[in-house]
Amino acid sequence: MDTTAGMRAMPRHEAPNDEWRAWADGYPSFASAGLRCVEISDTTAVFDFGGTPFPLNPNGAVNGGIVALAADQIMGVLGARLAPTGSMPVTAVLQVQYHSPAVAPLTLTAQAVHSGRTLQTIEVVVHDARGRRCSTATGTMSVGALEQRIAPAVGA
């Protein structure tokens, strides 16, 4: 199922941060994941997580898979912001450490650790409503030409 129909085109690398924030908030998976972009700059981004229809864990915390999904989505947006126009990052490695139960609402702060021509490293730190660090996610993003990233699969 194509969930990108009607989606706004990705801004150019040089576009103002407000355009990037609006683009992130308009991305279909962000609303589904309960994410809202609070701010984004050349190397950082902050997102709020209010919750999803996915059930909470028995202790009232957000499921770790949902935390990983949110971190990965945020890495994709910040990676796209970092990448040159005409290129797109994809997740090559995603590592998530869970420090304490993530009781929503959550704040997720992304920081570019490294941004090169072909590889990016992005860290996302997750804090709960009390300001406790719940999780830390680190991702390695592989950057390539946008046309290569959206080509149909072999045999499709």
Rank of each mutant, 00 (worst) to 15 (best):
L108F: 03
T52L: 10
T118L: 00
P28T: 05
T44M: 12
C37R: 00
S32W: 09
T43W: 03
E14S: 02
D2N: 15
Y98M: 04
V93E: 10
P53L: 12
G50Y: 12
Q111R: 12
L69T: 12
I150M: 11
V96Y: 04
D128W: 01
P101V: 02
A24E: 05
V67M: 07
A156I: 03
A61Y: 08
A80M: 11
P101N: 12
D42K: 14
A15D: 11
V154Q: 14
R12M: 11
D25I: 13
N59F: 02
G144R: 06
M10R: 03
V38Q: 12
R117Q: 14
H127E: 10
L69P: 06
A45G: 09
D128F: 05
N63R: 15
H13M: 03
Q97M: 03
L78R: 05
G60R: 11
L108E: 08
G86Y: 08
P16I: 03
T85Q: 02
S29F: 15
E14Q: 00
T85P: 02
G144I: 10
A137Y: 13
G65P: 05
V103R: 13
M75S: 11
E39A: 14
M7A: 05
R149T: 02
G144Q: 13
G65Y: 06
N17C: 14
A129E: 04
I150V: 15
R21W: 00
V103G: 01
G76C: 00
R149Y: 06
S115D: 07
H114G: 00
V62N: 04
V46M: 10
D48T: 14
A151N: 10
F47H: 10
N57H: 04
V103D: 01
A70G: 03
P101M: 08
A112L: 08
D48W: 11
A15I: 03
A68I: 00
L146S: 04
W23A: 06
F54E: 14
I122Q: 02
C37I: 07
A71E: 08
E147Y: 05
I66W: 01
A102H: 10
P101W: 01
G26W: 04
V93M: 00
F30S: 10
P11A: 13
A33M: 09
I122W: 07
S32F: 09
A156G: 14
G131V: 11
L106D: 05
G86I: 12
L82M: 07
H127G: 04
F54N: 15
L106C: 08
G79Q: 02
T44L: 07
L35P: 01
A9Y: 08
D48F: 08
A15G: 14
P152D: 12
A24I: 07
A137V: 02
T3A: 14
I40M: 03
A61Q: 08
R130I: 01
M7D: 09
P84H: 09
A15N: 13
N17S: 15
G131L: 13
R81N: 11
S32V: 13
S135R: 12
R149F: 07
R149L: 04
T140R: 14
